[in-house]
Design a protein around this nucleic acid. Structure first.
Lengths: 400, 400
DNA sequence: GAGTGTTTATTTGGAATCTAAATTTAGTTC
DNA sequence: GAACTAAATTTAGATTCCAAATAAACACTC
């Protein structure tokens, strides 16, 4: 599509086509009459737009119209449908120890997935990129999709990313390498790569298909190993100056902790301490070392006193964090996400109870059902957002 | 202007007119050629649009073109200019004890002002409205403007206001009366009234004409009597679910304070405590009661030890607040605003020094030059934003 | 002061896009 | 097969844009 700088008559078609496309994304097969009703366009225009979009490859016309619908009379309507396989998007979760890639069609259906570990935590940048690229190619190959058909890629990383997708502050492992993933994948595959903070993607993901569906003001806390959060206000992600919005490290100043550990990390640590100290009681069921967070939750469920004390402590800590967030951000809902979320349900009650002590505007608290795929789900959503916003500027590999 | 639901040819003119208007708002008298260069439109279209806007009354054509510019050759260009007096906006600061109203032209120039005290803190709603209305009429009368020429009104109140301008949570004095200012002024005067939290308006104001010009990620703390803040991220105000975003009451959980006092309130209180306790030393210059915050700042400047200790304490407290904000919101700049701002400059150094202890992403800190007019300045900006966004849907009282 | 050059205003023609209304097409119902 | 229905297509008219040509107003030079 040609670029449009000022208001030219072509802008109209652009607007109309966007409206029709939006409607089709939200529907199954549709008739022209339905398009007219949804968009307010006249029949002539609606048909012209549909034909336009067909030629570009974004939608297709169905055969066998008779097979559809329960209508009886009159000339049978043509039916159009989003060509959900006209292209694909990739959602990536680039963690410390592994890379995960999800292939999604244009309706957001995940149709492929691949995951590959990094050999070690501190491998060189190009090797890291090679692993990521290989994982992406594996995932694409698994669904028989060509790299040319990838319309956008979104990658989540555990570093602050500003709203332009730049990693400014070097932090954690990422800064050590400063892998320029955007340039690398653009050069190798010609892909458009969007970078985003993993907690921010978790927020997008959970708002799309998690506990926060339909909620415009929500904070999603990735709470397993470290605490980080993605903040959505009025449906928009908060970034801050350098992408650092949503950091929760101010807990340090309350408890003097050196870093912001998440639920799983703390459960493990506190359990290990309790075992080492050989306090009066229990945690009998655990091996003396290598205690896993899930074991602590399980023991608490079985009535183990020490484990329950740990959960109490966890709940209080989370209530403090959520209380502070509730006060300053005032979300409607706070979601606890990440791998630990499936266990964290038992914390909801205690957290809600204590929350009132720490804020006068307590948010609802929930756990995300998305588990550890919360970041890739968000990455897919982010890539789809880009594609949906830029559809009419994108060219498909196979238009006709 | 007729409402447009779908993409009709009139939409084009709308877009073009908007672009021309935006350019004219940012310029003095302009020629058609300048409009062409700024908007990309052709001469014919630019002229048509200008004539359109003239007919609606938003711009005017200048006589005596010869008088302008340093150009020499060719046919003299017609010159157009924003009709900055085509209508007015009102910016209101509705405080606990008084109401202030500023009249502004369409270029944002304050041309009138009036202020009226409320007889007592707890007067009935209708009386409160009557005072506000009377203040507005006084301000308008002062500049010879008719109520019909008011295009929008924005009022700042010390209560949470959500992004739709609704006061949800009843809080402080406001909730006691629940004055429905929007409906009252609409019914009485036919005005469109936008409600907004006072700290949010302070943020808009300071970003417009204060210390935060050009900064997209900024937090403005109204810090005189109570602490409240307005958060702007990516140029957009944060509201949260019920308009409560920007509350800073989580300090409570650090120091066990019952409410969130601001700088002036604390300076006064701590000074009074020091005097009552008759500690070892000084504050000699103050009367034993009725200590004012400014006196504390003045005494500190003169080397008074107790006063300096109070400032140290204030700086530490502010550093904690700003530290927490810096971490979770990550703004580029934090501005201290309100009446106390002019004295608070001496705190900037100590605050910046301590800030590093409380966050790893410290923001720059500044004081606002807007003093206690920061809220009305923001209210004017907010009302202008509304007018500028809706210009083509508004009708002027005197078009031709 | 007549000729030349520059800049702007105005007019004309053409293209894209929308709406609205009339006409054709393809099927159902009786 | 005639009447009816709903969708598709065609045609006409309006709006708005761009592009190019023409006209006007002024300055500068000789």
């Amino acid at each position: 599509m040609t670029e449009i700088s000022v208001a030219t008559p072509q802008l109209l078609r652009r607007v109309s086509a966007g409206a029709v496309l939006d409607f089709m994304r939200a529907s199954e097969a549709v008739t022209v009459t339905e398009v007219m009703e949804a968009t307010g366009l006249t029949r002539a225009t609606a048909i012209a737009v549909c034909e336009d979009l067909m030629q570009r490859g974004w939608i297709r016309e169905l055969e066998n119209q008779r097979a559809f619908g329960g209508y009886q009379k009159g000339r049978p309507a043509r039916r159009f449908e989003l060509s959900e396989r006209a292209g694909y998007v990739l959602g990536m979760d680039v963690g410390v120890s592994k890379a995960t890639v999800v292939v999604s069609d244009l309706r957001g259906k995940a149709i492929g997935r691949a995951s590959q570990p990094f050999a070690e935590a501190e491998i060189p940048a190009e090797e890291r990129i090679a692993v990521i690229d290989r994982t992406a190619m594996m995932a694409l190959h698994g669904v028989g999709a060509s790299p040319d058909s990838v319309l956008a890629v979104c990658a989540g990383v555990a570093a602050p990313v500003d709203r332009n997708g730049e990693v400014l502050v070097t932090q954690h492992f990422w800064g050590l390498f400063d892998v320029d993933l955007k340039a690398a994948l653009r050069d190798r595959r010609g892909w458009t790569v969007l970078l985003e903070n993993d907690a921010n993607l978790a927020a997008l993901g959970d708002r799309w298909r998690g506990a926060a569906v339909g909620v415009d003001d929500v904070v999603v806390i990735l709470a397993s190993e470290r605490l980080g959060s993605g903040v959505i206000d009025g449906g928009r992600l908060l970034h801050g100056r350098g992408g650092g919005a949503g950091e929760l490290a101010f807990l340090d100043m309350v408890e003097g902790v050196g870093d912001t550990y998440g639920i799983a990390a703390l459960a493990r640590t506190w359990a290990a301490v309790a075992l080492a100290g050989k306090a009066k009681t229990s945690l009998r069921d655990f091996a003396a070392e290598g205690v896993e967070a899930e074991q602590v939750f399980a023991a608490a469920a079985n009535g183990d006193a020490v484990a329950r004390a740990i959960l109490e402590r966890l709940a209080d800590r989370m209530a403090r964090v959520i209380g502070a967030v509730s006060t300053i951000i005032n979300p409607e809902l706070v979601v606890i996400g990440g791998a630990v979320a499936k266990s964290a349900g038992v914390l909801l009650g205690p957290i809600a109870e204590r929350l009132k002590e720490y804020t006068v505007t307590p948010a609802r608290v929930a756990v995300s059902p998305l588990g550890d795929s919360i970041v890739t789900v968000g990455a897919v959503r982010c890539a789809l957002d880009y594609v949906e916003k830029n559809t009419l500027d994108l060219e498909l590999a196979v238009p006709a």
